[in-house]
Structure formats: C-alpha cells, structure tokens
C-alpha cells in the first residue's frame, strides 16, 4: 500500500516536472540534408531560440556529420553520427552560436539565443 502511494506521488512529481519543462522550454529539430542545415525541409541560416531551449540535429544524409560549435555562447562537439540518428544541445546562455560540421566546412548556421 505504502509503496504504491509513494510511486504515485513520484510519478506525479516527475510528470509535473516534465510538464513544467515542456511549458518553459521548446525543442527544435534541424536536419542535415545534402550537406545543408534544414528546418521543415527549408534551408535555415539562423534559428532563434530562448535560453533553455534544446535543438536536435538529425542526420538525413547517407554519410556521417559531426556538428560542433566553438563559440562562447555554446561550446560543444556532438561527435559523428549516422543517417537517421540525432543528437541534441541545450542552449543555456544568451548570445550567438555559430554551428558548423567539422567534416564538411561548407555547412554553417547560426543559433541566436535570447531571453
């Protein structure tokens, strides 16, 4: 009995947390197709997000990509990953992040992080 209530309470808290984060932060998906960053099938040069938002980078090409940024706003290296898979970054600071692919330097976009 006791255990059950605990679990119920825990589930409550967890779902509350999930809902909270869903309200506050958004998730975006950027795909890589033909060595181009795209959002909903359109080439994207700059994406505006709010502090706390997450961007998933999904590889739509039959070869690997390696998305990274060396900018102060967000310094990250997602490593190399294959077609169909995605890796995410959460932007936690206001500013401009220059996003590139290490393997294909012609791939470039910016993420503008605002309050």
């Amino acid at each position: 009995m006791k255990i059950k209530t605990k679990i119920a309470a825990l589930t409550g808290i967890v779902s509350a947390l999930l809902i909270c984060s869903a309200v506050q932060a958004s998730e975006y998906e950027i795909t890589q197709e033909h060595k181009t960053f795209k959002q909903n099938g359109e080439k994207v040069e700059r994406l505006q997000v709010k502090v706390g938002d997450t961007v998933a980078f999904r590889n739509g090409d039959r070869f690997f990509h390696n998305i990274y940024s060396l900018s102060d706003t967000k310094n990250f290296d997602l490593g190399s990953y294959r077609k169909g898979t995605a890796r995410s970054v959460t932007f936690d600071k206001v500013g401009l992040a220059e996003i590139e692919c290490a393997i294909h330097p012609e791939m470039y976009m910016e993420v503008e992080v605002i309050r």
Binding site: N66, Y68, L70, D77, G79, S80, A102, I103, P105
Partner: peptide, 10 residues
C-alpha cells in the same frame, strides 16, 4: 586548423 576531435589526422 580546426581543433575538433574527428579532424585529428584528417
């Protein structure tokens, strides 16, 4: 030129 791990020896 670009110090990202995957580029070592690339």
């Amino acid at each position: 030129k670009v110090p990202v791990k995957v580029l070592k020896g690339a």
